[in-house]
Design a binder for these strands. Structure first.
Lengths: 346, 346
DNA sequence: GTCGCCGATGTTAGCGCTTGCAGAGGCGTC
DNA sequence: GACGCCTCTGCAAGCGCTAACATCGGCGAC
């Protein structure tokens, strides 16, 4: 009985048979400090020892305990990233690119989704901070006071992405949604449309979409055009786009061009037009946002705005890595712009 | 000069002003052990102390250091999840549901994407294990030997999802893709189609799609129908579906019904048919897989197979939580089935 | 030849928690 | 009224690393 206890104890203590840095050190005939250095900054360890250590790591299939390392160094090679939704492929692509770039430098992403709620964002930020992350990346600029306070106190790089403006918490990488709306309004105006509409969904939560709408309406009106706004309460799905179009033609049958808050909505509108025999762009011009996958091949192909999805992720990763390594991270605020892609629909 | 050093030291030691459990303990007038217990198992601490501790935590805005906790307890409240792609909304929804459910119980997801590569999966598993996760969730059943070995050695719950079969590593939650293919073949046969086709993309990597195709072809041929397989090298995007359709009508102009490897591909095919004036389902029946957002509102609406996207996530979370808490986790292998949704396209 | 300096390695003291064990009351039982 | 037992709390020993500091040669400069 007494002989068994230590074994059970041992089992509890460290997984079943996971080796520790001390095991590697013993096998390589060095101290743990040297193993640690060989892992973190190989260049300061002599090639001979490095070789012996690598061999020992391989033989033992050693996997470092990042929690121990993180605790000792008071930071982790983790970046907390919060996007509104994972289902939406806008952000997915940004996250994929960012993740790949960071992973290449040994950093890991902890990804969460806020569901467009700043309360959920607050909870996520709190739980990420509990991991002493190397940085936090948030979508947008709208955060709770407590979130802001915690972020500031954490004293780590904070990136706000997918928007543009002044006085960010720390870094800001994105583009101006207001300008997107303006550009679409100008685009329609230039093509002679004078009765315009913006159709959006869940605009009370998706503030970026709302801002695109605001920019669109402001610019439309400034140029003397007539512009209406249709806001739907549902989530921005394909079906919602169809509903939006139905409301549009019913309430404002004379509208000549409509800016849908994103391509998913616009696709729904496209289908609904087809169903109702509304000629696009003949009778109604349509523009979306996102330049999603299908925009280039739908019938008709969809005029839209292409956001710098991948570039946002890449620039953030680069900026962050520069900060981590103490090199020049470049400007704190980066406006990456966007492209209006003119296709058949308008 | 000398007076400054300790301050800098202090700064390095523990963020700028992040409070520790010891601070909470002092303020509440208890030991850190009691604070720890109040956090982990509140029911074993007296209501009075619990109240004082909660108050102290609130006043100090205390956020526990999970790395310290994880190190001390040799485990973390983290679940590593690996999906092939984030862009694909199939998995996103599963992950969202699973994440919400787990978050409710205090567990966090570390999400990564393998890009359908088992080498990347191997690297991700290794880096997740370095965090002593409470469990690992993988997509599919195809893993490298080393991944398997590490998973087994880690001695934690492992879930393979989105597939079905025998002898899983540990738990398996999903459905049979082969059966999906069979069901679609039967569906087409029942409607009198005798010349069938499966069109897929990147089938060498997306093994689930390949299996749907295999099941489809096997069942078609078993029922005496003629069935061809078109495999495209590109990624499964909307445009790829169009390319697939073009090849299909060129190489096999007499095909009456086609099963596209997923809805995204099928949508591309739908557009291409429209462009070419091919009547759907009149001249060609089309079926997809996934029941994505647009399937119910496209023109024509898309016949497809609905996988239990959300249920997979929910069941995994429940099974895992049961394992964590030592209660009955239910069967290790769960076949959640699927629904064939008949719509206009076929 | 001696000195000092620098690069490579070892020593050691924690990082902030968790948890086994011990101790301290409080209460029911005989 | 003493005893045992149970509940609640404190004590203290780590968890597996990192990094500041100490140490030890070797080598160039004078």
């Amino acid at each position: 009985m007494t002989a068994v206890a230590p074994v059970a104890e041992e089992g509890r203590r460290r997984g079943l048979n996971r080796s520790r840095m001390a095991d590697v050190a013993r096998l390589a005939g060095v101290s743990t400090a040297t193993v640690s250095r060989a892992l973190r900054r190989p260049e300061i360890v002599s090639p001979e020892l490095r070789g012996r250590i690598d061999e020992a790591i391989r033989r033992l299939a050693y996997v470092p305990n990042l929690m121990a390392g993180g605790l000792a160094s008071a930071r982790s090679r983790t970046v907390g990233v919060i996007v509104p939704s994972l289902i939406n492929s806008f952000f997915s692509e940004t996250v994929e690119v960012m993740g790949e770039r960071l992973a290449g430098a040994g950093y890991q992403i902890m990804l969460g989704h806020s569901g467009y709620s700043i309360e959920r964002e607050e909870a996520l930020v709190a739980s990420y901070l509990a991991w002493s992350p190397a940085a936090i990346v948030l979508t947008g600029r709208h955060h709770s006071r407590l979130t802001l306070r915690r972020l500031l106190e954490a004293d780590i790089p904070v990136v706000e992405m997918w928007e543009h403006g002044e006085r960010p918490v720390d870094m800001l990488v994105g583009f101006s949604h207001r300008e997107v709306g303006r550009a679409v309004a100008r685009h329609f105006s230039e093509r002679g449309a004078r009765r315009l509409a913006f159709v959006g969904a869940a605009l009370d939560r998706d503030l970026r979409a709302a801002e695109r709408g605001d920019g669109f309406l402001a610019e439309s009106r400034a140029s003397g055009a007539q512009a209406v706004r249709i806001a739907l309460a549902d989530r921005p799905q394909v079906a919602t786009g169809g509903v939006g179009l139905a409301r549009l033609v019913q309430e404002h049958p004379d509208v000549e061009a409509a800016f849908f808050s994103n391509d998913v909505m616009a696709l729904g509108a496209l289908f609904e037009c087809q169903r109702r025999g509304i000629a696009v762009p003949g009778r109604l011009r349509l523009c979306g946002f996102g330049d999603l996958d299908f925009a280039g091949v739908s019938v008709p192909t969809l005029t839209t705005v292409r956001p710098p999805r991948r570039e946002i992720g890449q620039r953030i990763a680069e900026g962050l890595l520069a900060r981590f390594e103490g090199t020049d991270p470049g400007p704190a605020v980066l406006d990456l712009g966007f492209d209006l892609i003119e296709r058949e629909s308008g």
